[in-house]
């Protein structure tokens, strides 16, 4: 389901251009609005759709192996930390789902603190073993070669 952009809704903000993992959304120099320059490279990840707050981008099933007439709408809300889905079947049936996306506010991860430098040459990663929830790091119970 490659993406396409409705000229009337797009304001040319470029957010979709910024996010596409495959570098597919490019500005059309004629109208300064983006379009999918390579539909055959689209993974249908919908990241461009989720990021467009004008709802200007839609997807349609691959015309060459998916029947037409179905649709998926998505709204991702970083304030409520939910994603809302609306699936329209070809026969008109509608399904709606919503799921949480995060339990903490965006931007809440702080630059990590230094680990204990005395452990640099040990096998411990930072905050271990506590962060694993056990008392020490595991080593193979019988560190031996059992074949050859």
């Amino acid at each position: 389901m490659p993406t396409f952009v409705y000229t009337s809704r797009c304001v040319g903000c470029g957010d979709c251009v910024d996010i596409c993992p495959n570098d597919l959304m490019h500005f059309n120099p004629k109208n300064r609005k983006p379009y999918n320059i390579e539909p055959e490279g689209c993974w249908e990840c919908l990241n461009c759709v989720k990021v467009c707050n004008r709802s200007a981008i839609e997807v349609r099933g691959y015309a060459d192996f998916v029947p037409m007439g179905a649709a998926i709408d998505v709204l991702r809300d970083e304030k409520r930390n939910m994603v809302f889905w609306r699936i329209k079947y070809r026969n008109g049936k509608i399904k709606e789902f919503s799921f949480p996306i995060r339990t903490k506010p965006w931007g809440s991860i702080k630059r990590p603190k230094a680990a204990d430098p005395a452990q640099l040459r040990s096998e411990f990663l930072s905050d271990e073993p506590d962060i694993i929830g056990i008392k020490d790091l595991k080593v193979p119970s019988a560190p031996r070669e059992v074949s050859k």
């Binding site: 490659p2 495959n22 539909p39 055959e40 490279g41 689209c42 993974w43 249908e44």
Partner: peptide
Amino acid sequence: GEGMGRTWYPP
């Protein structure tokens, strides 16, 4: 064709 990017591991 148009759907060539629809693979399991991403294109």
